[in-house]
């Protein structure tokens, strides 16, 4: 866009976002907040449901299939969701039937005319439940990756392709979830590999806090969903 410089000074402070590749088709809720400098790429549909917040410079890539983001999620800056794994992991092919049933609620709508409909396209390469927080610089590989409701993914964590993270899990900073791994609900994962169960029972409080945070972010982040249409 060769926009006439409305602000004559300091163009350089926000470098142009590299919008490589095709613009993906989107299904946006009207009540979401998506920053102008978020990056959406890939050929498949990206669905973001109501009241979710996408921070600046978050990158959603639908090369491996659909991306579904639930209600009231917060995706922080510099996250990379839907990254195509470098080595094609065959391990993620296992347990597909269980994933179909989980993802079918979001996945099956539409896309009848698409020629080779692989299951991963229908289910979605990455599916985030409701109230998920994805912190700064997290990488989530695409390929039937599922993250359950209320899970917090800590700063700089990596989630492999085909992994299933249960509901209300907490991943501390720099955690790694291997491709195809299944994490039960209410698990806390530490970056040194230790795990334990979360028995605090603070789900409702956490969800309330998330809602409050979204209220504030809604005022602070200028939303521009029209840019991605």
């Amino acid at each position: 866009m060769a926009a006439p410089s409305s602000s004559s000074k300091r163009h350089s402070i926000l470098p142009a976002v590299s919008q490589a590749g095709p613009k993906p088709p989107i299904q946006f809720s009207s009540s979401l907040v998506i920053a102008d400098s978020a990056i959406l790429t890939g050929p498949h549909t990206i669905t973001i449901r109501s009241e979710s917040v996408i921070h600046p410079r978050a990158r959603l890539e639908s090369t491996a299939g659909r991306i579904n983001i639930g209600r009231r999620c917060i995706v922080h800056e510099r996250t990379h969701i839907g990254l195509v794994p470098s080595s094609s992991s065959s391990s993620s092919r296992n347990g597909k039937s269980s994933l179909v049933s989980k993802g079918s609620g979001l996945g099956v709508l539409g896309e009848a005319g698409e020629a080779p409909v692989s299951p991963s396209v229908l289910i979605g390469a990455v599916t985030l439940g409701d109230y998920v927080t994805v912190e700064v610089a997290v990488t989530i590989e695409g390929g039937e990756t599922l993250i359950g409701d209320g899970t917090i993914v800590g700063v700089g964590s990596k989630i492999g392709a085909g992994a299933t993270v249960g509901k209300h899990c907490t991943l501390t900073p720099h955690s790694v979830v291997a491709p195809g791994e299944v994490i039960p609900d209410f698990t806390v994962i530490y970056s040194n590999g230790a795990r334990r169960k979360d028995r605090r029972g603070v789900v409702d409080l956490r969800n309330k806090g998330q809602a409050r945070q979204i209220e504030v972010l809604r005022r602070m982040i200028p939303s521009n969903p029209a840019k991605f249409q």
Partner: peptide, 19 residues
């Protein structure tokens, strides 16, 4: 870099939101 009068050196490829 952009060098300001007060001696700050800010890379052109830095992302400063809400300057």
């Amino acid at each position: 870099y952009i060098e300001t009068d007060t001696g700050n050196k800010v890379a052109r490829k830095a992302t400063l939101v809400g300057t």
